[in-house]
Design a protein around this nucleic acid. Sequence first.
DNA 1: TAGATTGTTAATCGATTAACAATC
DNA 2: TAGATTGTTAATCGATTAACAATC
Lengths: 210, 210
Amino acid sequence: MTHKGISRAVIKRLPRYYRYLGELMENGIDRISSMELSERMKVTASQIRQDFNNFGGFGQQGYGYNVEYLYKEIGLILGLEHTHNVIIIGAGNVCRAIANYPDFKKRGFVFTAIFDNDPSLEGTTIGNCVVRSVDDLEDYIKENDVEIAALTLPKSAAPTVAAKMVALGVNAIWNFAPTDLNLPDDVIVENVHLAESLMRLSYRIKEKNK
Amino acid sequence: MTHKGISRAVIKRLPRYYRYLGELMENGIDRISSMELSERMKVTASQIRQDFNNFGGFGQQGYGYNVEYLYKEIGLILGLEHTHNVIIIGAGNVCRAIANYPDFKKRGFVFTAIFDNDPSLEGTTIGNCVVRSVDDLEDYIKENDVEIAALTLPKSAAPTVAAKMVALGVNAIWNFAPTDLNLPDDVIVENVHLAESLMRLSYRIKEKNK
DNA sequence: TAGATTGTTAATCGATTAACAATC
DNA sequence: TAGATTGTTAATCGATTAACAATC
C-alpha cells in the first residue's frame, strides 16, 4: 500500500468517499461495485477505480469492494486512526459553531482548549472548553500536545497569531479568517473562506439567469 | 465582454482575485501588473492573464491592470452588483456564526430571516433577525424576495427542507449540512463541508510526517 | 521612440474517461 | 465454468505554463 505523490484532485475526493462509505455501513450494505457507487455519488465508475488504485487496489474482481474494509483503509489514508487535538484561537461565533459541532469528534478531532484576548470571555465555557487568555497560549502549547490550531479571529489578527503558532511549533492551521497566511512551506494551512463560497454561489445564480 | 463556458477552475479563483484587488485598493494601489500580482498571490502571471482574458481583456499593454476597474469588473462577473437576500433554516451555532459575520454584508449578502422548528427559539434574535417558526416559511417566501437559502441544520433534516425550498421556488442553496442534496439540475447547491476540510488537513499532516 | 506588459497562440502537463485483459 | 467486476493501459480532454508578437 505505497502511495507517493497522490494528486490533489484525488485527495480532495477522499473525504467524500469516506462519508459515502460510512453511510453505506450505517445502512448495512457490506459490498459495493464501482458502478453502484458511481451512481450514488454521481461520478464515473472509472474515476472511482482509478482513485482507489492510487493506493494499491482495495477491490476484488467479480465482487467489488468490501465497504467496511474500504472505509477503514481510506480512514487510514486520511490519518483518522488517531485523535487530533485542536485548539481554537478566537472565542467568537465561528468558534462556538465548530466547538459544538458533533461531527468532528466522530472523526477523531477533539477541541482541547480555546483562547481569546478579551478578558471578559475568560472562564466562560464553549463546548467542553473553558476560554483561556491568549497570554496562556505559550505555556499551554508547551505543556500539551497540540496538533492543529483553528483560527477563528478577525483578519487583522490572523497573520500575527498564525506566526506565533508556528513559532510555538504548531504546524497545522485551520484558517477561518478571510485572508491568506504567508507561512513557511512546511506549515500546513487549510483555509475555510466562507465569503468565497458565497461568491461562487452568486456567480452561478447569475450565469443561470442570463 | 462575452463570457460563455468559463471553466470551473477559473470561477473558483475569481473570488480570491476579488479579495486581493480589494486589499490593493484599500492600500491605495491603483495599478498592478500580472507579474506583481502573481508574486503576491503565488500563482503564475501567465495564469492571471489567461484567467482575465476569459472575460475579454481588462488590461493595457505596457501598463498593467487598473485595480479599481478590474475589481469592479470581477464584481460584476460574480454578480455582486446587487444585493442577495438570504434566509437561514436552522437557528443553531452555525446560523449564529454566519448571521453575525460582517464580511457577507460587505459583499452584498443580507440575511433577511431565520427559521427553526424549535418553538422555544421563536422570537429570539440572531444578528438582525428574529427567529421564526418553520411553519411561516411558505408564507414568508411567497411574500418576500428570497434568493438563497442557507441550510444550517442537521443532516437528517437537510434533504426534506432542501426539497421544500425548491418547491417554494428558492433555487440556490448554501448547504452546511454534512450530506449531498439530490436536487434537480437547475438548482444551484454550494456545499460547505467542514468535516471534509478537516480531513484534508489531517491527510496533509500525515503525509508530512512520514 | 524604447520599454513594459498585455493578449494570445502553442507546448506541456495533469486529470478524466474509455476500453479491455486479468482474475476472482 | 461463466459472469461480473476490478486493475490498468491507452485515448481524450482540460488546465496550466511558456513564449512571443501586438501594442500601449
